[in-house]
Design a protein around this nucleic acid. Structure first.
Lengths: 178, 178
DNA sequence: CCTTGCGTTCAAAACGTTTTGAACGCACAG
DNA sequence: CTGTGCGTTCAAAACGTTTTGAACGCAAGG
């Protein structure tokens, strides 16, 4: 294959590996996704293993993870006993999958913990000595700051997850500041 | 100290540890930040080490990292030879620091690599055989999808980083979809 | 029934990151 | 000048995660 195509392939695959790490996935997941994304035809596990020079076991496990995250889908080729995969090429769809199942849950849990804390502090206040009451109020301020912060995060996530099609540039610039 | 205050402290510190990991920092950085955030008075390195039951060396290194990220600042106490730290309690300021120095650079690099790829593909196209040309066009489509994706990310980051004060809820809900 | 070709699994190994703790340097007080 | 108390450093150890590769299961074809 031509040198420039290989170069583009390499940097894209490497870049998606980086991106995957950034999102808390493994490097290999990102590279597998990149390899599939740049292949018009579906690829088999062996082709992926050869292409990235990693073990078949690793490909098997990481591809299952990619499937669970909706980043790749299995393709049935008639007459073939091998499994073939293609990348989900709609990046916003991938984004929605990830934010929707992982990040939203994370934020939910955080908000739950924080509102429990507010509850605890308010309930306990009467039982506290003066000094402790002051500290409790201080805690309350901080915890409520965190709550406000996470609520904004929650709204932002809901917006992306609830969107259809791709977010466009103009839309994002229309975010306004208090 | 009262049980409920300890419970709130624990869960907040643990939660900020989680959050720190999520953002690619170490758990300890998040816990140190949380500990400082819930202390009306500045704390010394030894107090932090004792409070979290970690070594003094770790506190020293992680606090310097927190300082570099603008998440804590040193407080000079007259007559004291110890170093004291306080948390930067404006969470949006912390966010702006992190997004501004780390994430923006990351996105910049990605965009640079992608536009280099576009350039390479366009330059090389005339030299390619028919089959390769088709693949090059396929690559171009995919690379440009990635470009669009990262440009949205860049805009979102710019918006947050360039903002002053805290983003409010309404503002975020005003994001519109294509 | 056996063989072949495939995907899956998982224990062990490789690897990277984080934590520790002892050694060190520095500044101040006596 | 010396001792004390502090922060810093870094090599070694602990730890967690990822990768490998051999063993296995399973299905299809002979």
């Amino acid at each position: 294959m031509h040198k420039s195509l290989l170069a583009v392939n390499d940097s894209t695959v490497a870049g998606l590996g980086r991106l995957a790490r950034f999102f808390g996935f493994s490097d290999v997941m990102g590279r597998l996704y990149g390899t599939l994304l740049l292949n018009p035809e579906p690829l088999s596990l062996d082709e992926l293993a050869d292409g990235l020079e990693i073990s078949k076991g690793s490909v098997s496990m990481n591809m299952r993870a990619l499937e669970r995250w909706g980043m790749a889908k299995e393709i049935w080729m008639r007459g073939e006993r091998k499994k073939y995969y293609m990348a989900e090429s709609d990046l916003w769809q991938v984004m929605r999958n990830i934010l929707g199942s992982r990040e939203q849950r994370e934020v939910q849990v955080a908000l739950q913990v924080l509102s429990d804390s507010v509850e605890k502090l308010k309930t306990a206040e009467p039982d506290l000595c003066a000094e402790e009451q002051e500290l409790a109020r201080y805690y309350l301020d901080r915890v409520m700051d965190l709550q406000a912060f996470f609520k904004v995060a929650q709204m932002a996530l809901d917006t992306v997850v609830g969107s259809e099609g791709s977010l466009d540039f103009d839309a994002v610039t229309r975010i306004e500041i208090e």
